[in-house]
């Protein structure tokens, strides 16, 4: 079997979908965060494969930026999550109800 652009794109779309589903239906905030990372990586896979099949390096370059930004996001995000966990002793999103009408 010849692995073509479509295969990469389908895998990345499926990954993106799984990540999105994780963000939407999981209740643990750390698992939600993992879902977000998966969405970003799905986009990375898509970028790299497009870059390879378009014969253009911009996509590969973009992935470096995405990875760097994602790392910064994780650093800030986990710090926030840990700070919140210390206050609440819980990582469940149902309990984030201080801010409501």
């Amino acid at each position: 079997m010849n692995v073509g652009l479509e295969h990469f794109q389908i895998v990345s779309a499926v990954l993106f979908g799984i990540g999105l589903l994780g963000v939407l239906i999981r209740r643990n905030i750390f698992v939600i965060y993992m879902g977000l990372e998966m969405m970003l990586n799905a986009a990375n896979l898509s970028l790299v494969s497009f870059s390879r099949f378009n014969n253009d390096l911009d996509g590969q370059l973009m992935v470096f930026f995405v990875i760097t930004v994602a790392a910064a996001e994780v650093a800030v995000g986990l710090a926030l999550l840990v700070a919140l966990y210390r206050k609440r002793q819980s990582a469940h999103v149902e309990e984030l109800t201080t801010l409501k009408l």
């Binding site: 999105l20 963000v23 977000l36 970003l40 870059s51 378009n54 996001e73 995000g77």
Partner: peptide, 20 residues
């Protein structure tokens, strides 16, 4: 954090598709 990161993921995936 969660919602903005999700919108960033949409943005970057959108960029990937437009670029592709």
């Amino acid at each position: 954090l969660v919602l903005a990161a999700m919108s960033s993921a949409f943005l970057i995936y959108g960029i990937a598709l437009v670029y592709g």
